[in-house]
Structures are given as C-alpha cells and as structure tokens.
Design a protein around this nucleic acid. Structure first.
Length: 264
DNA sequence: GTGGGATGGGCAA
DNA sequence: TGCCCCTCCCACA
C-alpha cells in the first residue's frame, strides 16, 4: 500500500537490513541491467524517504531513486535470497540480507542535481521532522482548487495518497470540495498535526488505521477490517459518527469519499 | 480461469 | 482529461 507511511517504513526497514553493507546488485527481469551494474559491489550508505520517493546513497557518490507508483512492491528478508518471484527489476544482496523490487514507476540512477530536481517538486512531508507546513498552507490559502485535490498534490504536501486524503479530511471534518482559500490557518494547523500523528501510526503499525476507537461500532478488541476507515471505500454505507450514507465522486482523477453531514 | 480495479504519476493533447 | 506504465489480488464465473 504505497502511500507515504509505506515508503518511510520501507526506508527504515531497508536501512536496518542493508545500510553499511557491500551489496551485489542485478536485474533479473533485465530492465535495469545497466543501472544495477553501476551499484553492484558498492557499499550502501543510507536509505532515505521523501514523500513517496526513496533515495539510496551508495559509496562513490552514486544515488538510486525509486518510486513505487501504484504497482511497485518490495520484498526483503534476512539470510540468503529466495528464488526470484515474478518480474524483479532490481535485486540487492548482502552477506546477511536481500531486497527485491518489482513493478516500480521509477528505478534510476541519479546524480545530486537529479535528486535536487525531484525534491524541488515536493511539498513538505509530514513524516519528516524538519518539514515546513507553512509552505503547504501558503499554497492552499491562495488556491481556488478543491482541498481534496490540493492535499493529494505532491507539490503541496508530499506523501498523502487517496486513502489518507479521504480519511484525514474526514477526521478534520473538512468537505473535500471546499476551495483551498476557505481553509483557515488554525484549521490547517490542526489538519497538519493530525496528519503527522496518523501517518506516524501508519509507519509504526505498517498499516493504515484511521478510525478512532470510540467511533468504531466495535470499539473493543482487534480492529475489524471493515472498521479501519471512516469513508474510504464505504460509498453508501452509514457514517460511523452520524449514520448518513457516505458519498463518493471523482476528484483529481481519483475517487474521493466523504460524509455530507460530518464534513462541511 | 478471467477481468477489473487498486494505495501513483508523467505525459500528450 | 485520458492514456499508459505494468503488478498483484480479489470477485466472479
């Protein structure tokens, strides 16, 4: 589920697994043979996440940029790498661990300038401690575009995808079609705080649970799959808070979900 | 077994 | 706005 939390989690996991090790790199699928040969046999120094983008720093100043897109997927583990499963674009193997990447939108070697160009297109990332929400708010406050489109625009806020968009706007009680200009500064500050908190939970738990226990029909015990989200994929079902049927529509080329009573 | 949809985003038009 | 990339998984037959 590659929204920002998945990517940050992957960076943390992969750093723990492979940083500091010399890695063998290859491309079993054959579509990244040249790139893999450039990093093959080098030490992996660090793995870092910015929004939905990953950067791998290798000894010698080489950098690998990965974006999973909708289909991309990592598999990893300790010990010897298992037989290749499916179309593996890139495989990294150290003496102690392995990592495979399949189906990414981007898997490329970039230089410092290339990395800068990518980062320049990204808004603040709620999962990075040094991010500056004021940059996001200044874009929102002077835009007539719907807030439901703005929060998913990676150049406004980096890391929010379609599930978090729907859920975070519900939690903030903000209707997705409101224009950016209608969002007050305090309202945005609260949205940003909640976003950080919810996404950090996502990194910690390795999944998105966006409902508050008190709002769930079954507040005790394990969270039932159908009660993980307030509105996402719940068109026509009753809102957990007010019972009104959840609505959906297309916004910024993706389906957005909301409660017409709770969200104003 | 098959088809459609999915958490994304770049690009042409 | 719509197409394409290109992978996995589920619902449905």
């Amino acid at each position: 589920m590659p929204e920002g939390h998945t990517i940050h989690r992957a960076a943390d996991d992969q750093r723990a697994l492979l940083a500091g090790a010399v890695v063998a790199a290859d491309s079993p699928q054959g579509r990244f043979v040249e790139g893999a040969s450039l990093i093959d046999g080098r030490e992996l120094l660090d793995v870092e996440a910015w929004g939905k983008h990953l950067f791998y720093a290798f000894a010698g100043g080489l950098r690998l940029h990965v974006h999973l897109g909708l289909f991309g997927r990592f598999r990893s583990g300790a010990g010897e790498a298992p037989p290749v499963r499916g179309a593996v674009r890139l495989r990294l193997r150290s003496a102690a661990a392995w990592l495979t990447l399949s189906g990414p939108t981007a898997c490329e070697i970039v230089d410092d300038d290339g990395q800068r160009r990518i980062l320049a297109r990204l808004g603040p990332d709620p999962l990075r401690a040094a991010s500056r929400p004021a940059k996001a708010y200044s874009r929102i406050a002077r835009s007539g575009v719907a807030i439901g489109a703005l929060v998913m625009d990676q150049s406004v806020i980096a890391g929010i995808g379609n599930v978090y968009r729907a859920e975070l706007l519900f939690r903030a009680r903000i209707a997705p079609l409101r224009p950016g200009t209608s969002i007050g500064e305090a309202e945005f500050a609260q949205f940003w705080r909640d976003t950080r908190s919810v996404m950090r939970d996502g990194v910690r738990d390795r999944r998105m649970i966006t409902t508050r226990p008190a709002d769930r029909p079954h507040p005790k015990g394990a969270v039932r799959p159908a009660e993980r989200h307030y509105v996402y994929h719940r068109t026509g079902r009753p809102c957990f808070v007010c019972g009104t049927a959840i609505l959906s529509a297309t916004l910024a080329a993706r389906t957005v979900y909301w409660c017409p009573v709770c969200q104003r």
